[in-house]
């Protein structure tokens, strides 16, 4: 099966976007709209919108803390699907601030329970508390970790945590980074947004 990332009508094995927090959301959406995941079992629209939700969280954190560094968004074609890595420098967050336990089985999370409703009301419905939930629902592989200033993995600690990394995969397969060479598919593209 042919598998590649289509961006601006060109084919890539890997695409990296650097998203600066000053850019408008409409602009980010217009760029993300140009990405298609050819050969993915998950529709491109679901992938793009799940990533947009996570990106919204990252943009909010960067803007709130006046962090000018870009958020990194990497898309990589794998032998069995795609990997997406979102890395921000927003200082991480307390997992206990979520209206649910992120480690719980996804089917056991009730997004209509009181905690969720309270969370939404407290945030005037500007935050649904569903970004991470939606990513977990959409992708069979979801890994969230925090890193310190030296990019080393570390538990969240206010003031010490530099940022958050979220790794998603469209397939649970471990067999990665080995795809058949296709002369039409370019290796890598980087773009600043």
């Amino acid at each position: 099966m042919k598998r590649y990332i289509e961006f601006k009508k060109k084919k890539y094995k890997k695409l990296e976007l650097k998203i600066y927090p000053t850019i408008s959301f409409q602009f980010v959406l217009s760029k993300m709209d140009l990405i298609n995941f050819i050969g993915s079992g998950i529709p491109s629209e679901h992938i793009v919108y799940a990533v947009l939700e996570l990106l919204n969280n990252s943009l909010r954190a960067h803007r709130k803390k006046h962090i000018k560094k870009p958020i990194s968004l990497e898309f990589t074609t794998l032998s069995e699907g795609f990997e997406i890595v979102i890395r921000d420098w927003g200082g991480g967050f307390d997992l206990h601030s979520l209206p649910y336990n992120l480690d719980a089985e996804i089917d056991e999370i009730n997004i209509h329970d009181e905690k969720f409703e309270q969370y939404r009301q407290e945030n005037n419905y500007k935050k649904f508390g569903l970004g991470l939930y939606l990513a977990r629902k959409t992708f069979p592989v979801f890994e969230l970790s925090f890193f310190d200033r030296n990019r080393g993995r570390a538990a969240w600690s206010p003031g010490n945590t530099a940022g958050t990394e979220i790794r998603l995969r469209t397939s649970p397969s471990e067999d990665v980074y080995q795809i058949q060479a296709d002369p039409e598919v370019l290796y890598e593209k980087q773009e600043n947004i």
């Binding site: 408008s24 959301f25 409409q26 919204n56 419905y125 500007k126």
Partner: peptide, 9 residues
């Protein structure tokens, strides 16, 4: 239905 636009808008 209440429609809530993105804060940037």
């Amino acid at each position: 239905t209440t429609i809530i636009a993105h804060p940037d808008l």
